[in-house]
Design a protein around this nucleic acid. Structure first.
Lengths: 228, 228
DNA sequence: GATTGTGAATAGATTCACAGCT
DNA sequence: AGCTGTGAATCTATTCACAATC
């Protein structure tokens, strides 16, 4: 079989997320001057699973050398490619409230792979201002503006009520993927990969792991051992 | 078997996240004046799976009425309880940069279940200022401050380099759970549930689903159908 | 001897399909 | 008749264990 056989096929989101993680580890290793690493070392250093690393990486082709390990630089390159980080993705942030503003600034910050090229809001007080070097435009211009600037990924950070309408407008304007921070179930367009990120759900997950209220046993805090 | 048998046991994070979702749907339904709903209707309205709803809810006990469906108000109450939302969780946000500030404001906003009671940063320029009604204190006071105000959940929004040290300080100060936004693999304390939220990984997931660069076929944007 | 890559085994999550209530 | 709750079946993900390779 050839070097780059069917290695580009569809990986599961779980695998993709781990690849991102591995990539970050490799960046760290490169900075520290490590140039070869075994799956076991990688796992130990960053609290991961060695077998899983091997299974995941094997999906991209034969990347390691038996008896030796993986070449840090080469693996880094290969992962970047597979994750599409070898080129710049253009982003638009829609909704420049608390979260939207933070996202614009956060994403504009020393990152070669993602670049915020447009921001939109429907609040007249915000339109025309600049956030993190990006001009905030009127949401109603969205369709026109996007068609000209070829935005690949949209970041939706509007209130729940406005999410679906904005999503539809974005898809109609030819955006190819959406990262949705609005706490709603969007009716998604099947051809546009959409990822929901709901901050409140993360908190609720933690909250529930803390155990529900036990009446008469109010809030054992401090250094106590947990119930289990 | 009694009404509240072993129903409080450990649900998987996946299930918990879906319960949060169902809860949000129920809130919406209650507002719209719906007071009974079947798993099928719930699924259709919010693009979920009916069987999965039933499986998930069954884990909390016998909540529905066969032939009829679920009582919206009662189910809402029951889910809130299980998710620990029937009481207020106290939060501390550590790191008041772009993201931290947005999180403080976002979380301070009309939410009964989570309340930001403290914010910390190590930047002298920020210490003493207020963000969303919360005073920013020096990170070095963290241990003392937390012991007095009994914070349950910490939100870590510091740069990667500072994350581990702050995490350790938080755990030592008796925090019971951590929501980590720093892009690092933390060495976690097993008794403190910790959830990583890495915004860049979400973007990378989308980026990779967009397909890698195909040389000579640069950026087909617009309304084209995707490769598949 | 060390380490990868992988088939087989296990664990976990989702879907199916239907018995059992109302 | 309609809908829940659930065992069985299926699908997906992870871990084990070892043959293949350096």
């Amino acid at each position: 079989m050839s070097r780059r056989s069917a290695a580009g096929a569809g990986l599961s989101p779980l695998t993709l997320n781990r690849l991102s993680l591995y990539l970050r580890c490799l960046r760290d290793l490169a900075e520290r001057g490590v140039d070869t690493i075994s799956s076991r070392d990688l796992a130990n250093r960053y609290h991961l699973s060695a077998t899983q690393i091997r299974k995941d990486l094997a999906q991209l082709g034969e990347l390691g050398i038996r008896g030796v390990g993986y070449d840090v630089a080469q693996l880094h390159r290969r992962l970047s490619e597979r994750l599409g980080l070898d080129r710049t993705h253009t982003l638009a942030v829609v909704g420049v409230g608390n979260l939207g503003q933070a996202l614009v600034r956060f994403l504009s910050f020393r990152d070669e792979s993602f670049r915020v090229v447009a921001a939109f809001d429907n609040d007249p007080a915000k339109i025309g201002t600049r956030v993190g070097g990006v001009a905030v435009r009127d949401s109603t211009e969205l369709a026109d503006a996007l068609r000209r600037t070829e935005v690949e990924i949209a970041v939706l950070a509007v209130p729940a009520e406005a999410a679906q309408a904005n999503y539809d407008a974005l898809v109609a304007a030819g955006v190819r993927a959406v990262l949705n921070f609005a706490p709603t179930r969007l009716e998604t367009h099947p051809e546009v990969p959409t990822k929901d990120v709901d901050l409140r759900i993360f908190l609720e997950e933690l909250g529930s792991q803390l155990g529900a209220r036990r009446d008469g046993d109010p809030l054992r805090l401090g250094r106590d051992r947990p119930p289990a």
